[in-house]
Amino acid sequence: VTLFVALYDYEAITEDDLSFHKGEKFQILNSSEGDWWEARSLTTGETGYIPSNYVAPVD
């Protein structure tokens, strides 16, 4: 499982989006939707859509 880490803070715009803070880690559930990925936060356990350009793979 490839994990991703937030590079910036993000505040949800719609109820389907997931708010997060810089440094938060995610498991990507679906990355086939283009620039918005469905993800689960490993910090909160919540799922929602995140902007793919706000995250990077964890080394």
Rank of each mutant, 00 (worst) to 15 (best):
V55M: 09
F20E: 00
D59I: 12
I13N: 10
T14G: 15
T14P: 03
E11H: 11
A39M: 05
Y8D: 07
G34H: 13
T44K: 03
L3D: 06
V1Y: 12
D17A: 15
S31A: 13
S32V: 10
V1F: 13
T47S: 09
Y49T: 07
D16H: 15
E15F: 10
R40P: 00
G45D: 06
N30R: 07
L18S: 01
Q27I: 15
S19E: 03
E38W: 15
V55H: 01
S19M: 03
E46S: 10
T44C: 04
T2P: 14
P51W: 07
S32D: 11
I50Q: 00
G48E: 00
Q27G: 03
D16V: 14
K25T: 11
S52V: 09
T43L: 12
T2S: 11
G34K: 15
P51S: 05
N53S: 15
S52C: 09
N53P: 06
F20M: 09
V55P: 01
D59Q: 13
F20G: 00
E46D: 10
W37C: 04
E33N: 15
I50H: 00
G48V: 02
A39L: 01
L29R: 04
Y10N: 03
Y49Q: 09
N53M: 10
D9G: 05
G23R: 02
V55A: 04
E24V: 03
T47I: 14
S41L: 07
V55F: 10
S19R: 04
F26L: 09
P51M: 07
L7E: 04
A56N: 06
A56L: 08
V5I: 13
A12S: 11
L7K: 05
I28T: 02
Y10T: 01
F26E: 00
G23V: 00
L42A: 05
W36A: 05
R40I: 12
H21G: 07
F20D: 00
R40H: 07
T2R: 07
A39H: 00
S19H: 07
A6I: 01
D35G: 12
E46W: 08
N30G: 10
N53W: 13
W36G: 03
D59R: 09
L7I: 10
I13R: 14
R40T: 14
R40A: 05
Q27C: 11
I50V: 09
R40Y: 09
E38K: 10
E15S: 13
V55C: 05
L3T: 10
F20L: 05
Y54L: 13
